[in-house]
Structures are given as C-alpha cells and as structure tokens.
Design a protein around this nucleic acid. Structure first.
Lengths: 237, 237
DNA sequence: CTCGTCATGGTACTCAAGTCCCATGACGCA
DNA sequence: TGCGTCATGGGACTTGAGTACCATGACGAG
C-alpha cells in the first residue's frame, strides 16, 4: 500500500511534470497514434527515465492518456418516456461516441487483452460506463421487469452494441461503420422487444417457457461431442 | 506475386522444417502461452534465423500455430426442425468451443487488433466461420424472412455471441464463463424471436413500423450534440 | 544565503522483435 | 563419387520496452 510517487514530496512540480507527459501522450493518442514512451517524453520535454518514474510501462501511460467521456447521461434534454425510444437514443449516442473515437477504443481493447500478468492490475481500463447509461434508458421498465431480467437485458444490449461488436462487424463481417451502427441499433431494440414480450407472457406459458434457459443443455453438449476430437484443428471463427 | 519460400526448391525438407516449427508453436499456444519466435524455434530444434525465413514475424507464426476447427456444421446428428432449437444447439456448441479455447481466442483477437500496418495483410486471421454455422441453423427461415433480414439476424446473433462479447461480459461486467454463456444464449434466441415477430407483423403496421431503422437519427444526434465538447475527456466504456 | 533534500537527466544494461550477411554442410543430380 | 545448389546456422546490428545506478541541479526550509 505504498503511496504513489506523485503524492509525496514536491507534489506540485510532479503534478506539472505528469500533466505535461499525459498531455503530450494524449495529443498523439487522439490522432490515432500509439506513441513510444520515449516519443511522448520527448514531446513533453521530459527524459525517458522520468517518464518511467510516473508510469510503470507504456500501457499505463496510454491508459492515462486515453481521452475520457464524463457524461453522466446520454439521454437528450427532454428524454422520451417510451423505453424503446429512450434506449435507441442512448444507444445511438453511445455508438457515435464509439465510432468517433474508434482508434482509441481499439487500442484500449487491445491493451485490455494484453497477456502480460505484471500489467494486469493496472486498472481502470475500460470501466463499463455504458451499463449506467443503458440502465438509465431502461429505467421506465423498473416495475415491468424483475431486477434480474433487467440486468440481463442491459448486459445483453451492451454486449451486442459496443466496440467489440463493431470490430467484428467491420473487420470480419465486412460491414461499413454506418451499417454496423444500424445493425447494432436493431439488435438493441430487438433485445428489448424480446424481453418485454417475454415478461408480458410470463406465467401463462407452462411448457416451452424459455426453450433456451437450460433444458437444451444436454442436447447442445451432444452436438459438440462429435467435434471434441477436432478441437485443435481449426479456428471456430 | 512472388512464390512463397516454401514452394520452391527442396520443398519436402522445407515442409518438414515448417511443420516442426508450427507444431512446436502450436503446443505452446495450446497451453495458453505466447511463445517467442526464438522459444518456438528452439523447441523445434531450429535456429531463430530459419524460423524467420518461414514466417515474417511472430504474429504470422502464432496465426499458423492457431488450432483450427474444421467442422462444417455444429448441428447435432439429428437436427431439430424448429429454428429456435437449431439455433440454440448451434450457439451452445459454438460457445463451448470458444470457452474451451478461450486463451487462444483472446490471442487471436488481440493480434487482429494489432495496429502495425505491415502485419495487417497477414490474413486468414479470424475467418468468420460462425456465419456459416448460424446460417445453417436458421436455414428453415429461408422462406419466412427476406434474405436481407436473415443476414442481418445472423450478424446480430454472432456479434452478440462470440469471443468479443465473452471478453466484455467476463472482464468488464464481471460474469463467470457459465453466466456469460447463458446470457449469450438468451441474446441469440431473443434476437431470433424479435426477427420472427417483426416479420409476422410486417406490412400490417403503418407507422412505428421499425422505430429503430433510421427515423430517429436526428433525435439521436441531437442527444449527442451537447456532449460533443466533452468528447475527449472520458472514456465511453 | 546556505545546505540538504529530491526531482530530474544521462548512461548503461537486458531482453525480444526483426533484419542482414556470410559460412557451412547436407541434399541430390550428373 | 564428386560438385554445385540451397537450406540452415550463427553472428552482428537496429529498435523499443523496461530496469538500475549515479550525477546534477533546482527547490525550499533554516
């Protein structure tokens, strides 16, 4: 629990140094670059050695340099009451944020996948702000859905609409940014519709209530069984 | 269009050398490691220099070492007729493949995000096999959905259920693998249900047909407008 | 103004990626 | 069996990440 370097001694000087370094790195990151520690340090008129005093590695510097969005809400000034409209407004705004900062989003995603264990605890890295934004959009559903179902819906929506999905839709599926955004908006509203339909008919259905939620486990497994031996031959994706 | 190194001269010897190298790398990759070029070469009793003759960089070697799955289908032996059941079987099998090889999937995802332009054309890297598998599961819907809607549905399902979504659900949302799989299965079937509901009521509805597909553009944009100035302050996620 | 603390700068080192060049030795054709 | 081709190995070099050590010079408390 040692106090970080910047919080002891001549703290004001350190703040200025650190600020200059982060600012230099931020400028380069915003332009889509991935600056070397030395490059960022040089740009800030700081020695490489000093830079490493403030950040244990390049990754940490890039994380600190990552432009962040402070918005507490993505809803428009006069938010709609209808959950569907609210959700679409938020998702659209969210996706535009993502697309507008796509290079940085990709960098952060890549860094978060870094296998190096020593870098793992570096942290705030990808905070999951979207959960709050989507949750706010869906707040009219509080009474309609159980807390559990609501949370599941939020997570499902976010995992269907975000930088990860964008990467796959553009890089693998070959969609344009615009098409990808349209598709993710559709996904989000489709998931919402399903959740609502599910809740409105809940209790009435006796069998086939949720053909997905577990009963098919056995069958699914048997489906993979014959593939087990091939598992190390080809990539699933 | 120069012929690759291995296809000229003493090709049999080269095949053996290359095979040994890939095999050595594959073993390490399968154990979740990310071998150095030198490590893989040493393990294959090959010099580092020679290794670089076969693969231009570590990335290419890792890609070649990536275990691939040759399955043409993920459907069980006696596939259900019901599209929903078929989809769930395929998605479940697919997700188990992903989870079982998660470290490699993550590595591939990370490599695919590599910014280095010289590595970009390296190739097959993440081929998008799942599109075919899901498409096969949904083949009973050929007549029911337009080709365009069917394709959209397939892409939506795959982008909601795959390694990218798994990464987010576990790393950011904090779900366990098991929970994440359950959630993605729900997403897949929910998307299918929505698509079917949409098609069965199509043509009847005059307004509010698809509140998502474009009409809300203006509103969504205005929602983000007030945030434009904050764009470089905090991360959206 | 002085002196000791402390932030900084510089140099040198390790390690991995990647490139280049040249020697060597095995393969296979004549 | 001999010889030239050619795959391989080894060494040297560059660059970036990251670490360690020591000198210096500025700040500020007395």
């Amino acid at each position: 629990m040692s106090i970080p370097y910047e919080l002891s001694g001549r703290t004001r000087q350190k703040q200025r140094t650190r600020g200059a370094l982060v600012e230099a790195a931020r400028e380069m990151v915003t332009q889509g670059q991935t600056p070397t520690v030395d490059e960022a340090a040089t740009k800030a008129s700081i020695s490489r050695t000093t830079a490493y005093r403030y950040f244990p590695n390049q990754r940490a510097l890039l994380v600190a340099a990552h432009p962040e969005i402070g918005a507490l809400s993505l809803l428009p000034e006069k938010p709609p009451i209808d959950a569907s409209a609210r959700l679409d407004a938020v998702i659209t705004a969210f996706l535009h944020l993502i697309v507008d900062t796509e290079p940085q989003q990709r960098t952060m995603l890549r860094l978060s996948l870094d296998p190096d264990p020593s870098h793992r605890g570096d942290l705030p890295l990808r905070k999951g702000r979207a959960i709050g934004w989507i949750g706010e959009a869906l707040s009219p559903l509080r009474g309609q859905l159980t807390e559990r179902d609501l949370r599941r819906l939020i997570l499902a929506i976010r995992s269907a609409a975000g930088i990860e999905a964008l990467v796959w839709l553009t890089d693998i599926a070959g969609l344009s940014r615009k098409e990808a955004v349209q598709l993710m908006r559709w996904s989000a509203s489709a998931l919402l519709r399903s959740a609502l339909a599910e809740s409105s008919t809940a209790g009435r259905q006796i069998k086939r209530r949720r053909p997905v939620e577990g009963s098919t486990r056995r069958r699914g497994s048997s489906g993979t069984a014959k593939l087990a031996l091939n598992l190390r031959r080809r990539a699933p994706d």
